[in-house]
């Protein structure tokens, strides 16, 4: 790529010849551009740093909306407050009670599609939230439901467009993924999963439940 290749040490003729052969053009896959464009098409705009820091909360990341990122974050905050009330659990209470949780999402492979996934662990279970207003159906598959795509559908809130499901999941480590309109995907924020055994992306959830003080 640099215009002027500085010659540090002269190469032996055989090595020079090898480098020349290795520099032969290698055509890219004809599906590269379409695949990349399809993948980014549903991601929206790459986010500038400041706005991203402002809006990012644990594993939650808001997908950009035409209304504006701030409007989305306000709406989202309102939804979560409402949700907590429904469950009767305040987030800071769950920490004070000694419940500890680690929701880790990591992906393998290319995962085009909605970006926003949040996993919240409460003393009574785990909540999965996905922001994907334009898809038709979303379900959760993983170790905790026998990898059945029809076992755990997420429900879309028509007001917010968020897909949600709450599951009772006991302490342990679980692989899981989402099936969105028939396509398997995990959190596209991270590029690799711990085990990519079957060629499709997985996320990992760890739930630790220490002895509750309540």
């Amino acid at each position: 790529m640099s215009e002027h290749r500085e010659r540090d040490d002269a190469l032996a003729p055989s090595v020079e010849e090898a480098a020349r052969r290795l520099a032969r053009p290698v055509p890219a896959s004809p599906s590269l551009v379409p695949n990349v464009m399809a993948a980014i098409d549903r991601r929206g705009l790459p986010r500038r740093g400041a706005m991203r820091r402002l809006l990012q909360r644990r594993m939650l990341r808001l997908s950009p909306v035409q209304i504006g990122l701030m409007a989305a974050s306000i709406a989202l905050a309102g939804v979560f407050v409402g949700r907590y009330s429904r469950w009767g659990i305040e987030r800071h209470e769950s920490w004070a009670a000694g419940q500890s949780a680690l929701a880790l999402t990591a992906t393998a492979g290319i995962t085009p599609g909605p970006l926003t996934i949040a996993v919240e662990v409460h003393p009574r279970g785990v909540r999965f939230v996905l922001s994907a207003p334009e898809v038709r159906n979303v379900s959760l598959v993983g170790d905790f439901n026998g990898w059945r795509a029809d076992a755990t559908p997420l429900v879309r809130d028509p007001t917010t467009g968020l897909w949600t499901v709450d599951l009772p999941i006991s302490a342990g480590r679980y692989s899981y993924a989402f099936v969105v309109d028939g396509r398997w995907m995990a959190d596209p924020q991270s590029p690799r999963a711990p085990e990519d055994d079957f060629g499709r992306p997985n996320s990992v959830l760890v739930v630790n439940r220490e002895a509750s003080r309540t």
């Binding site: 032969r24 896959s29 990349v36 500038r48």
Partner: peptide, 30 residues
């Protein structure tokens, strides 16, 4: 693709790596 092919020594792996690279680069473009 050329770099990935030379380093990974497998065309399929190389194409995977290149595709993921461009997607990651998009995410990090900011």
């Amino acid at each position: 693709t050329r770099y990935a092919d030379r380093v990974l020594r497998d065309r399929t792996d190389a194409e995977d790596a290149v595709q993921e690279t461009f997607i990651s680069a998009y995410d990090a473009l900011a």
